[in-house]
Design a protein around this nucleic acid. Structure first.
Lengths: 105, 105
DNA sequence: TAATTAGTCAAGTCGTGACTTCACTATTGT
DNA sequence: ACAATAGTGAAGTCACGACTTGACTAATTA
């Protein structure tokens, strides 16, 4: 079910990948620029970027010999919405429950 | 870094686990009640519940011989906040950029 | 008390995912 | 042209995670 969210959540479950997102939130960066502070190979970064690209979080463009990655504007909103929906559903239920229990006053 | 979010995102990356959360959003349920529609063993469900419990999404209580699981009120908010923060950071940057580019009019 | 029900424990299987290395292909600066 | 730079591709390693089975315990119910 919803392989979309599957890949998205699973992608963000990796700390290196979230670190990449964090870095890109401050602005676009090249592959080797990302590899530096993260203590992994450029190959690893390239693989991570591919994953993040496939789930719509990151956009990538290669000009000349350097590939520049940047965040996709609404790439994270599915996550946000999913969490928000569950939370509001739960809150509604708990409110109803509180109302019912409150009747006894 | 932040093993908290690590486990949280990774937990939600599993479709069965998200299905459990979905089910629990409608109200508490026992282990076997959860196992039924999901087509997996009760053992598997128990393991999933343990994972969800460890990352603060689910609460569990065993009375008699039946263990009942329910959602923790704010268990998903770290996810929501993380996504929202990145989005707003990105939007701010893009707005600034648009302003600068717009100067030329 | 016997049989059913609800869940737990300990292993074991099987796939997948994060990383690396090494060789290789563009590009760019001297 | 030559050397350095930036990244890609194909293997291969290694650990971990999802799930199952089978034996077992504890609480119900007939």
């Amino acid at each position: 079910m919803t392989p979309d969210l599957d890949r998205l959540f699973q992608a963000l479950g990796d700390p290196t990948r979230r670190a990449i997102v964090d870095r890109l939130a401050e602005g676009p960066a090249s592959v080797s620029r990302l590899a530096g502070p993260l203590g992994v190979t450029v190959t690893a970064i390239a693989q991570h970027l591919q994953v993040l690209e496939q789930c719509g979080v990151v956009r990538t463009e290669k000009v000349g010999r350097v590939r520049t990655a940047s965040l996709v504007p609404n790439g994270l909103t599915p996550v946000e919405r999913w969490a928000r929906d569950r939370r509001s559903m739960l809150e509604k239920r708990l409110d109803r429950l509180a109302d019912i229990l409150g009747e006894g006053d």
